[in-house]
Design a protein around this nucleic acid. Structure first.
Lengths: 297, 297
DNA sequence: CAAATAGTGTCTGTAAGACAATATATT
DNA sequence: AATATATTGTCTTACAGACACTATTTG
C-alpha cells in the first residue's frame, strides 16, 4: 500500500515535504442572494395586501464601489466550506440560521473585482417574514430590503451558419424607499450542431456593485425554474398561510397570473391543512395551511 | 463622481495603493466529468448494439492518490475563468473543442485535497463518439473511458421531530477493460419546517482519487434531471442518428426503459428528419435524424 | 345586502402510458 | 419465409387551462 512516486517518496513523505506552490491563487467570496416576501401597503382595509419579492442589499462603505449597493457576502476563510461561509454571512447580516440555502453558480470573470483576483461562489437563501425583522437592527442606512422585478424586455433570435444565437434581454428593477436601480441583463444562448452555451452579460447597470446584477438575475432564473417542480416556494411562507397567499407568492416569483382552481390542485400535495382560519379579514375567512413534510416529491 | 473613503482616498487612489492581503487563499481547480456514448459489442450481427455511457478518467502519476483514477482537471490560472480552464483541460485531454459544457457545483469540503486548500469547480461536458478517438493518442495506459452505471440501491426516510431525513443510497460502478470500481454515494435530504438541505457524502470509495466519486454522482444527477426537459442528450449523438439510437441514449442515462411511441412523440420537436436511411442492418432500415436547431424549447 | 374573498365543479384540450397493428429491409 | 427492427394508430389516463358557480364572513 506504500506506493512510491518518481522521487521515491511514499504518500506520507510526499505530503510532509509538500509546500503549497508559488502559484497565484484567487480569493473566493461567498455572496448571497437572500429572498423574502413582504406585504405591500394595502389599498383598502378590506382588500388583501399584495406580496412583494425582496432581496437584501448592503451599501458599500469602502472602495471599490463606495456607496453602491452590493449583495451580502464575504471571503471564504480557511477551514470552512463555501456553504459554511454563506451560512455565516447570512447569520451575521440577518441573524437568521435555519433557512433554505442553495449554491447557484461560481462567477470568475477576470476583472470582476478591480482589486484582485476574486471568484464569487453565489448562494440563494429563502427566508420568510416570520424569521426576519425587516429593518435590520444595527444600521438601517447600510442595509435594505429591495423590491425586485425581473421582466423579459426583448427576445431576439438570429440564425448564424449552422446554428443560432438567441438573446433574451431582461430588465432587473430594485427599489427601496425612494431608491430605484435598473439593470439590464442579457442571457445569450449560442447553439451550434455539437455545442450549446449560455452566457449572462450586463448591458446596463446602475447603483449595483461588481457583477452583482448578474448574480441576482441568475438567482431569479433558478428560483423561477424550481418553483414549478419543487416545494421551494414554501420556504418563503410563514408557518401558517392561506392558499391564496401561497398563490400570490408563486405569482410574484413567476411574474404571471395563475388560475385559482388549477393552482390549488397543483400544490395540494405540498401543503397540509390545519383547523385554523384567518379572522377579521372583512370577508370570508380562509383556511390556514402549513408545509407538508410527510410527502415530498 | 470622485467619492472619498474613510482614508480620504478616491477609488483610483485606493486601487493603486491596494495590496492583496495576507489572507490565505484557496487553490481552485476545474474538474471535468466528460460523458460520451459508445456501442457495446454486438451479441449477434443482426441485433442492434447496446449503448454505453462512459466518462474519461486519468490515472494519477504522482502523489496524492498515486495510481488511483481521477477526473481530468487542473488548477485555474490567473487571467482565465473557470470555464476557460475547463475548456483548456478538455482540449488538452481529448483534443475536442466545440462541445456542450456546463458548470455543475463548487466543492469545498475541508481536507478534500490532502496537500493544501483546494476547491473544485466542477463541469460536465458532453461529446459524441464522432468527436473523440476513444483511445487517447499519447498514453493510453493513463487515460481510459470508463463505463458508468449509477443505480439507486436503497431509500430510507426517517421522521425526526418536526421534519424528516431522507437518504438515497446510490451505487456508482465504473468499469474499463478489467478494471472495475464501485463507490457508494449517499444523497441526504434534511427537511425541517423552514429549511431543506441536500448533502452528498461518500460511503464507500474504491480506486477513485479525491472526492471525485461525488462529483461524478452529482454530474449524473444533473444529466438525468436535464434529459427530461431539454435537448441536452442530443449533444451525445453523432451528426446523424436514428430515433432508436436516441432512445437508447435516453434509456442508459435514465437507467429505465421507455415506450417507443411516447418517446417518439416527445422528442419529435427536438430533431429534424433527413432523407437518409441506415443500410445493411439485417432488418428494416431506419430513417436518420439530426438535431433540430430551429425550434429549441 | 354589498363587498370581497374562499372554495368547488366541470368541460376541454393536450400529453403521456400502454399496447397493438402494420411496414420493410436482410439472410 | 423468418428475423429483427421501424413506424404509426388508438384507446386510456392524468393533468393543466379556462371559466363558472356556490359559500361565507364583515361592515
Amino acid at each position: 500500500m506504500d506506493l512510491l512516486d518518481r522521487d521515491g517518496l511514499t504518500e506520507r513523505e510526499f505530503l510532509e515535504q509538500y509546500r503549497a506552490g508559488d502559484y497565484e491563487r484567487p480569493s473566493v467570496a461567498a455572496d448571497m442572494v437572500i429572498f423574502t416576501v413582504t406585504n405591500a401597503e394595502a389599498d383598502s382595509y378590506r382588500k388583501l395586501p399584495e406580496k412583494e419579492l425582496r432581496i437584501l442589499l448592503i451599501r458599500r462603505g469602502g472602495h471599490p464601489f463606495l456607496g453602491k449597493w452590493a449583495l451580502p457576502g464575504g471571503f471564504v476563510r480557511p477551514n470552512e466550506t463555501t456553504e459554511q461561509a454563506a451560512a455565516r454571512e447570512l447569520r451575521e447580516e440577518t441573524g437568521v440560521d435555519d433557512v433554505y440555502l442553495e449554491q447557484l453558480y461560481t462567477f470568475s470573470d477576470i476583472g470582476r473585482d478591480p482589486r484582485t483576483w476574486v471568484m464569487s461562489c453565489s448562494y440563494m437563501a429563502l427566508i420568510n417574514s416570520d424569521q426576519v425583522q425587516l429593518k435590520a437592527g444595527d444600521d438601517a442606512a447600510d442595509a435594505a430590503w429591495f423590491k425586485v422585478t425581473y421582466r423579459l424586455l426583448r427576445e431576439r433570435k438570429e440564425l448564424i451558419g449552422d446554428g443560432y444565437v438567441k438573446t433574451m434581454e431582461y430588465e432587473l428593477k430594485l427599489s427601496s424607499e425612494g431608491k430605484e436601480f435598473t439593470a439590464v441583463v442579457n442571457r445569450t444562448v449560442t447553439a451550434k450542431p455539437t455545442s450549446t452555451s449560455t452566457v449572462y452579460s450586463l448591458v446596463r447597470n446602475e447603483g449595483l456593485a461588481f457583477d452583482h446584477a448578474k448574480l441576482i438575475a441568475c438567482a431569479i432564473d433558478r428560483l423561477r425554474g424550481k418553483v414549478n417542480y419543487t416545494d421551494i416556494a414554501l420556504h418563503l411562507m410563514p408557518k401558517f398561510f392561506t392558499l391564496t397567499e401561497l398563490q400570490q407568492v408563486y405569482e410574484i416569483i413567476l411574474d404571471k397570473e395563475l388560475l385559482k382552481a388549477a393552482f390549488r390542485r397543483k400544490v395540494g400535495d405540498l401543503v397540509t391543512e390545519t383547523d385554523q382560519y384567518t379572522e377579521n379579514a372583512g370577508h370570508r375567512p380562509s383556511r390556514l395551511y402549513r408545509r407538508n413534510l410527510e410527502e415530498y416529491r
